[in-house]
Computed example of a mutant assay.
Amino acid sequence: MIPGSFDYHRPQSISEAVGMLADMGDDAIIVAGGHSLIPMMKLRMALPEHLIDIQDISDIKGITVSGSEVTIGAMVTQAELIGSEEIHAVCPILRETALQIADPQIRNVGTVGGNVANGDPGNDMPALMQALDATFVLAGGSGSRDVKARDFYEAAFFTAREEGEILTAIKFTAPPAGHGYAYMKQKRKIGDYATAAAAVMLTLNNGTVSSASIGLTNVADTPLYADAAVAALVGSSLDDASIKAAVEAAKSITDPAIDGRGPKEFRTHILGVMVERAIRAAAANAA
């Protein structure tokens, strides 16, 4: 289908973009890479009268690693994330996850900010950002504020981003050196959303898990942070019983949609398989 008519705007700064949102209100939508928004516009599920393209705003581009503190500009593309050796050195799971998003053509245009900002439960980065305990920086008419990734997602396509706000950056503290990591994703075909996926990071101290985090993708209306699954791993030696307990705890919080990816029971089962594989892979590459 063809999108409805709209006016196109290309601000040069965050303040200009925020001002446009204030003036245009509900009639305006921000577009970054456009890979989530444009298909919805073609289906007439989104009918903006004004499209505000933020590609020219230099302040929200670029990656900064200062010690263990990482900042990713909202307009950084998945391809730029994959290509950043600086990011890969401190948080390799970002590259591993980004390489599983769609295809090279989309990754060259699709942005990290767009992937996390629109609240699509099928996107891969939101669960990973929860596992990283990342913070999202939002700019609006009243200034800038921080929202934890674990508090950002409220329902499918509904987030804590308020009217007139723009996500400008993602910040997190890099995991400890020597941590193990894995993003395991089952999908129907290359480029598809996950049937279910899991991000796992953990650290080992003399064979015992001293810290862990687990994020789940596309098995509920929002990404999920699996607190109880984490608790089952921390303090364990990653024996079969503790891994099984973590898998069951992760499965217990899921409520996947019924769609072409399968019934709920199947998708929950697949989620358990992905969590177990991710735990074992993370343990294998932990120093």
Rank of each mutant, 00 (worst) to 15 (best):
Ala228Tyr: 06
Leu202Val: 09
Gly235His: 08
Asp151Pro: 11
Glu86Pro: 02
Thr254His: 00
Gln100Gly: 06
Phe136Ser: 03
Ala245Tyr: 00
Ala149Tyr: 08
Ile166Asp: 01
Ala117Phe: 03
Arg280Val: 07
Gly215Pro: 05
Gly191Ile: 08
Phe136Asn: 01
Ser13Leu: 14
Tyr181Ser: 11
Ala287Phe: 00
His269Cys: 00
Gly215Tyr: 09
Ala226Thr: 08
Thr135Ser: 09
Asp124Asn: 15
Ala232Thr: 05
Gly25Lys: 09
His35Tyr: 12
Phe172Arg: 03
Ile279Thr: 05
Val247Phe: 00
Asp53Ala: 09
Lys148Gln: 15
Ala281Leu: 13
Ala229Cys: 09
Val275Gln: 13
Ile101Trp: 07
Gly113Trp: 04
Ile30Met: 03
Ala282Pro: 02
Gly4Gln: 08
Ile63Ser: 05
His179Asn: 14
Leu204Thr: 13
Asp133Val: 01
Ile2Gln: 13
Arg280Gln: 12
Ser15Pro: 00
Arg145Cys: 10
Tyr8Phe: 14
Thr159Lys: 14
Ile253Gln: 06
Leu51Pro: 03
Ala228Gly: 09
Glu163Asp: 15
Ala174Tyr: 02
Thr135Asn: 06
Gly235Thr: 03
Ala74Met: 10
Pro92Ile: 13
Ala177Ser: 13
Ser142Thr: 11
Phe172Thr: 05
Ser210Ile: 00
Ala149Val: 10
Ala169Ser: 15
Ile190Ser: 08
Thr97Phe: 04
Asp240Arg: 08
Val200Leu: 10
Tyr153Pro: 12
Ser242Cys: 13
Glu248Gln: 12
Arg150Val: 15
Pro39Ser: 06
Ala283Asp: 06
Ala102Met: 10
Asp192Asn: 13
Ile258Cys: 01
Ala220Val: 04
Leu94Asn: 09
Tyr8Ser: 04
Tyr225Ile: 07
Val31Leu: 06
Asp227Ser: 14
Val137Ala: 13
Thr203Phe: 00
Lys189Asp: 02
Arg95Pro: 01
Arg145Ile: 07
Thr268Tyr: 00
Pro92Gly: 11
Gly62Phe: 05
Gly19Glu: 08
Asp103Cys: 09
Leu21Ile: 05
Asn218Arg: 11
Thr173Gln: 10
Ala17Asn: 07
Arg107Leu: 09
Thr135Cys: 03
Ser252Gln: 11
Arg261Cys: 10
Thr71Glu: 10
Ala257Asn: 11
Leu51Ile: 14
